Computed example of a mutant assay.
Amino acid sequence: MPVPLKLTRRVATALLGPTALVALAGCGAQGDGRAAEAEARRTERGAPPPAPTPRVEVLPGMPPVVDPNDLYSEDRPNRLSPVVKDFPSRVYVPNTGSDTVSVIDPETYRVVETIKVGAQPQHVVPSWDLRTLWVNNNRGNTLTPIDPKTGKAGEPVPVHDPYNLYFTPDGKHAVVMASLDRQLVFRDPHSMEIRKTEPVSCYGVNHADFSIDGRYFIVSCEFSGELLKVDTLRKKVVAQRKLPLKGAMPQDVKVSPDGKTFYIADMMAHGMWVLDGDSFAEPTLLPTGKGCHGLYVGRDSKEMYVSNRGEGTVSVFDFARGEVSKKWRLPDGGSPDMGGVSADGKVLWLSGRYDSEVYAIDTRTGAQLARVKVGSGPHGLAVYPQPGRYSLGHTGVFR
């Protein structure tokens, strides 16, 4: 008997069965019915239904995790937020010895502007809402805001010892890494007024990254060779451990795409510490190169670029294989330090800390595309804009 075109869900299920109902819904939503055909084939084979992807229960107020298997899924090439889509593409380079920010046009590889800022700028940090770039003037005890739409700097905001800057995943707090003060200072993300100060017993807090659910973050302590685990909601250090190497000097921190592993660059161990963030058990060392310093995930979430400042190289770490798959050497040497990946994923930008220059590196071949002369002591440069819904801080950690 022919089935009427207009059916209630209950009647359709009774007459046609759940598989056919899926087919009707699939045709309406997709047009080609491919999903329904795959479901029908699966049912005919007697295969069990695919296991549902577990939903990540995130920190209250945090945007949902789109893909639990890849927390960088929203950082794909040129997937720019509407907030930043009209911003000009620039590379902002803080020069710690010149008290300036060099602004590079990535199309021409030329410095198009030099902005005077406070004493010893360390990092240029995108705000959680993507609308502001904050220059961390460490010795000047200020943050200089830059409008990335116009490139103009605003009035400096008084903030003590701002070596580095992060934002909680819910966007409610800025977290100042007060390295010499031995503090994590939770502030209003806009006014920078203090909300809570968390003293730490380690020395030299500097870099961090957050768990996939945003409920904790791992912090490196450069001068005492330690790691901290911090409860995001409570704004409190809940665990602390010494790295298993005398003289360890941990730097940048990045979490793996599946959120299961943290990697911590160590410039004295010449490699990355591999840490289970949930258990916070003793990490193991994965060698990369002399002076391992900065960690940057590629736009396909398959590789991570590791700058080895002490030997002028970049190691390419393969997440799936858990090993370094190749190493690129800068011609004529150099001191690759901190940076970021271009919006299209084709260029890795790194500051040359001891050489007053910036390197542009082809992410497909490792070839050097350009060396751009900047001020003295270039450090935590930011490539901006970049893909992502929001920023967790540093030179651009996006989700």
Results as ranks from 00 to 15, higher is better:
residue 126 P to H: 09
residue 117 V to S: 04
residue 143 L to R: 01
residue 144 T to H: 09
residue 92 Y to T: 00
residue 146 I to D: 02
residue 125 V to S: 07
residue 132 T to N: 02
residue 116 K to W: 09
residue 125 V to W: 02
residue 131 R to M: 13
residue 83 V to P: 05
residue 93 V to H: 06
residue 90 R to V: 12
residue 142 T to Q: 02
residue 104 I to D: 00
residue 133 L to V: 08
residue 102 S to P: 08
residue 139 R to Q: 14
residue 99 D to H: 13
residue 101 V to P: 05
residue 107 E to N: 15
residue 140 G to P: 06
residue 85 K to P: 01
residue 143 L to T: 07
residue 94 P to M: 09
residue 82 P to A: 06
residue 128 W to E: 01
residue 138 N to Y: 15
residue 83 V to Y: 05
residue 149 K to P: 01
residue 92 Y to M: 09
residue 122 Q to D: 14
residue 117 V to L: 06
residue 88 P to R: 01
residue 131 R to I: 10
residue 96 T to I: 15
residue 118 G to T: 04
residue 77 P to N: 05
residue 78 N to R: 11
residue 90 R to P: 11
residue 123 H to D: 08
residue 106 P to H: 07
residue 128 W to P: 01
residue 111 V to K: 03
residue 81 S to C: 08
residue 87 F to P: 01
residue 130 L to K: 08
residue 90 R to N: 12
residue 117 V to C: 06
residue 128 W to D: 03
residue 92 Y to F: 15
residue 123 H to A: 04
residue 87 F to N: 13
residue 83 V to W: 03
residue 138 N to H: 15
residue 147 D to G: 08
residue 134 W to M: 07
residue 97 G to C: 07
residue 115 I to C: 04
residue 113 E to W: 02
residue 106 P to T: 02
residue 144 T to I: 05
residue 114 T to V: 12
residue 98 S to M: 11
residue 148 P to D: 11
residue 87 F to T: 09
residue 145 P to G: 11
residue 93 V to G: 07
residue 96 T to Q: 15
residue 122 Q to S: 13
residue 144 T to Q: 09
residue 91 V to G: 00
residue 131 R to S: 13
residue 125 V to E: 01
residue 148 P to H: 12
residue 79 R to W: 15
residue 93 V to N: 07
residue 105 D to L: 03
residue 137 N to E: 14
residue 136 N to T: 15
residue 82 P to N: 04
residue 109 Y to M: 10
residue 93 V to W: 12
residue 97 G to R: 07
residue 142 T to H: 00
residue 124 V to M: 05
residue 121 P to F: 04
residue 122 Q to R: 14
residue 80 L to V: 10
residue 98 S to H: 12
residue 136 N to Y: 03
residue 84 V to Q: 10
residue 83 V to I: 15
residue 125 V to R: 00
residue 105 D to W: 08
residue 132 T to P: 04
residue 124 V to Y: 05
residue 114 T to K: 06
residue 81 S to Q: 10
residue 146 I to R: 00
residue 134 W to T: 04
residue 137 N to W: 03
residue 144 T to F: 10
residue 111 V to W: 06
residue 141 N to P: 08
residue 119 A to M: 14
residue 95 N to Y: 12
residue 139 R to P: 00
residue 81 S to E: 11
residue 137 N to Y: 00
residue 125 V to H: 01
residue 104 I to A: 02
residue 89 S to N: 11
residue 92 Y to D: 03
residue 115 I to Y: 06
residue 80 L to F: 14
residue 80 L to T: 12
residue 102 S to W: 06
residue 147 D to R: 09
residue 110 R to S: 13
residue 137 N to I: 01
residue 100 T to N: 10
residue 90 R to Q: 14
residue 141 N to L: 03
residue 110 R to C: 02
residue 101 V to I: 14
residue 106 P to Y: 04
residue 95 N to A: 06
residue 85 K to Y: 13
residue 132 T to I: 09
residue 98 S to R: 11
residue 104 I to N: 02
residue 83 V to K: 13
residue 116 K to Q: 15
residue 105 D to A: 11
residue 113 E to M: 06
residue 77 P to Q: 05
residue 148 P to N: 12
residue 130 L to H: 07
residue 140 G to A: 04
residue 105 D to V: 07
residue 131 R to C: 08
residue 149 K to E: 14
residue 113 E to G: 01
residue 128 W to T: 02
residue 111 V to H: 00
residue 113 E to C: 00
